[in-house]
């Protein structure tokens, strides 16, 4: 999940009796699966939570370009390079769709950029891990995008119209991301013993961080309960994580790779895989800014923003010059 542990600002779930008439009417519409659109009345907490969730998601797409961008110039073939370039370009596009959706809730693009560049905003923990070998690019597409899809597909049905529409666009493109990753992994897994070892090593390093993407168990979380009631969260974190494990383990087996979890076992009774406990201490460390790449990601982001300033200034100056010319001609 690209948005992790989104706070709703509520301390309990309101009963319908406690709600104001407006809140009740709003909740009734959500219950009936009627989409909420930008200018319509909505509870302040709904609006704020959505801004937090959508912008966190957008920031993740933007920062998410870095681990993969790292390999564009070193892709093994021209074809792989073109594919990776297209994928990273998609991530930028996804970030832009999502920023636009967030802006319909009354936050400005500059505020969002400022939150990201100042380090105030959060983005997914997964992008704070380094991409050490080419196999990591395959593993990211397969596992990270696979986990993202798990979460994004249900969000296509979320209650907020612009977010739902952005999710529909994103999901259409995301499937290419996962498939190209699995394809790259397949090549390596069927290659020389060294290449297969590289694929295994990437799986070893990305497996647990991918499971962390769904966030810690939220069975007891009032924020998750509230978000689910508002239909801006559709499944619980544990539910999605289980689904991801069930789907991914056979894919690893097909590649002849071993999932790095000694507790992983098919449970015929449950009809699901049992798996080991995620190291949540590590997760909280990464979220707190102490992951392997947190500082580097932010530094790179700010540098790109600063170094692009002259382009923005030039575009501004050109637009102003043209506007002045049009005005002079009209006079």
């Amino acid at each position: 999940m690209y948005a992790q542990m989104v706070k709703t600002g509520v301390d309990h779930i309101q009963s319908k009796e406690e709600m104001s008439p407006e809140e009740r009417a709003f909740q009734d519409r959500v219950d009936q699966d009627i989409k909420i659109e930008p200018k319509e009345w909505m509870p302040e907490a709904y609006r704020k939570t959505l801004i937090r969730q959508i912008s966190q998601h957008a920031h993740s797409e933007i920062i998410g370009m870095q681990p993969e961008g790292n390999w564009i110039t070193r892709a093994p073939t021209l074809e792989r390079k073109a594919i990776l370039l297209a994928k990273v370009q998609d991530e930028a596009g996804h970030g832009l769709y999502l920023y636009c959706a967030a802006e319909t809730l009354g936050v400005s693009r500059d505020e969002l950029m400022e939150q990201l560049n100042s380090g105030k905003a959060k983005y997914s923990s997964i992008f704070n891990y380094p991409t050490l070998t080419w196999a990591d690019i395959g593993a990211i597409g397969w596992l990270v995008d696979g986990a993202a899809i798990m979460n994004q597909v249900p969000l296509q049905r979320c209650s907020y119209g612009p977010y739902s529409r952005a999710m529909i666009r994103i999901c259409k493109e995301e499937s290419f991301h996962q498939r190209q990753g699995y394809d790259a992994m397949t090549k390596l897994a069927r290659g020389t013993p060294e290449q297969k070892q590289m694929a295994q090593d990437a799986l070893n390093r990305w497996w647990w961080p991918s499971l962390m993407m769904f966030g810690p168990s939220d069975a007891e979380s009032v924020h998750s309960a509230q978000s689910m009631r508002w239909k801006i969260k559709i499944n619980s974190n544990d539910e999605l994580r289980q689904k991801f494990v069930d789907q991914t383990v056979p894919q690893a087996e097909y590649l002849g790779l071993t999932v790095p979890d000694p507790d992983l076992k098919w449970n015929a009774e449950r009809g699901h895989y049992d798996f080991g406990e995620v190291n949540w201490d590590e997760f909280y460390q990464v979220i707190a800014g102490n992951g392997p790449c947190n500082r580097d990601r932010l530094r790179t982001r700010v540098k790109a923003y600063e170094e692009g300033r002259w382009v923005r200034d030039a575009a501004d100056a050109y637009a102003a010059k043209k506007a002045a010319r049009t005005k002079a001609k009209a006079a």
Partner: peptide, 24 residues
């Protein structure tokens, strides 16, 4: 309608729209 974007003028908006909304 497919979405929105920021740009300093119409010309740049069209160029950006090509990259953001018509990659496929």
């Amino acid at each position: 309608h497919v979405g929105s974007l920021h740009a300093p003028d119409a010309e740049m908006a069209i160029m950006n729209a090509r990259d953001v909304y018509t990659r496929r």
